[in-house]
Design a protein around this nucleic acid. Structure first.
Lengths: 191, 191
DNA sequence: TACTGTACCGAACTATTTGTTTTATATTTT
DNA sequence: AAAATATAAAACAAATAGTTCGGTACAGTA
């Protein structure tokens, strides 16, 4: 890709997410974006057909990184091998280390948009590596939904309070509250 | 309140929510609303300062009913008195019976907006009637968030699939998956 | 270095939308 | 019946989205 394209694309992404941190998605205008990114109007529309396209691509970029790095070669959801080695703990670490501004966007006024992306990606990840479950007579769809939903809600709760707990700590909380209901042994993946 | 006011207000609410069922909140224009409600432009703005105000009032009306009826004289979150008598089961029943179009709105394109309202109302309700918890070393804020978050996610999952389970059944699922982690006795409130 | 392609800028333009204002009409309330 | 007020209709200004086009500057390549 042409270096010019990369630069303007990055400038627009940066401008857009910095705007998203202080105002709602709906109230952001294209004019604001191109002013802050310092690109021409026609240039913006050469890259993104509409504001929604921009949002979609931003989300893809953001969560694509986080998710793919979390999915890389992990043994299972609650691994008993590496101490803080569950996929969930991995995700929380990435969120906190903040490869980007994911955490800030998660507690922005437009958090709902990012949450739904987060949710979808997470569910795909979980469905891919779901261990044999013995959750009694509860249907699998319900359990997966419960697992992903709870995790996302927890991440949001965490981010909104400024992430005071460590990823390991929060991961322990999550395990304590979900593992028993799923028929897994709790407290094994931790030191 | 003047009968004319009531009528136009109802017409606008009805038009707005019927539009919300088929398109996203952001894409709905005031023109569409007043066309469908068959009211004059100035009339709309005499009632609602902006589209967001309309949304806010609609949510208040919708969830206000559901929540207040659920909160009325309930003994506790997981009551062992009436069989399907927990607050959660009550809420699910109201959602299914559909005092309004809450369920349809919950799985609309703009579900995020309604979910956040639902969340807030529910959390207020839960905080008001939280029983003594023995959830081990887990902080109360975390538990409340987990409880409310899980419930809302479950309701969404339910609504999106067309509510095939009965409220009682779903309430049992929820109890099975949350009660043990909260240190409560499961399976007592059911017949 | 020189050449070629293309990304960018800026300005102008149309169409749509928002929100306001005004006047006349219809309906409710007293 | 009279007064008050909610509504309709139309015109209006301002902001915004998205397009078009000609000129300029930069990147990749020989």
């Amino acid at each position: 890709m042409d270096r010019r394209q990369r630069r303007t694309r990055a400038a627009i992404f940066s401008a857009f997410s910095s705007l998203l941190e202080r105002q709602s998605y709906g109230s952001i205008t294209v004019q604001q974006i191109i002013d802050r990114a310092d690109v021409g109007r026609s240039t913006f529309y050469a890259h993104f057909g509409t504001k929604e396209d921009l949002l979609r691509e931003l989300c893809g970029e953001l969560f694509g990184h986080v998710m793919s790095s979390a999915a890389g070669g992990e043994p299972g959801l609650y691994s008993r091998e590496a101490a803080p080695g569950s996929v969930f703990c991995h995700l929380l670490q990435h969120l906190k280390n903040g490869d980007g501004c994911v955490a800030r966007l998660l507690c922005s006024e437009s958090s709902g948009i990012f949450l739904s992306y987060f949710r979808d990606q997470l569910e795909r990840l979980v469905r891919g590596s779901f261990p044999p479950l013995s959750g009694g007579e509860l249907p699998e769809g319900f359990l997966i939904n419960h697992l992903c939903g709870s995790f996302v809600e927890m991440a949001l709760w965490w981010a909104k309070r400024g992430m005071p707990e460590s990823p390991e700590q929060l991961s322990r909380y999550f395990e304590a509250v979900t593992a028993p209901a799923l028929g897994w042994q709790a407290g094994q993946g931790q030191s």
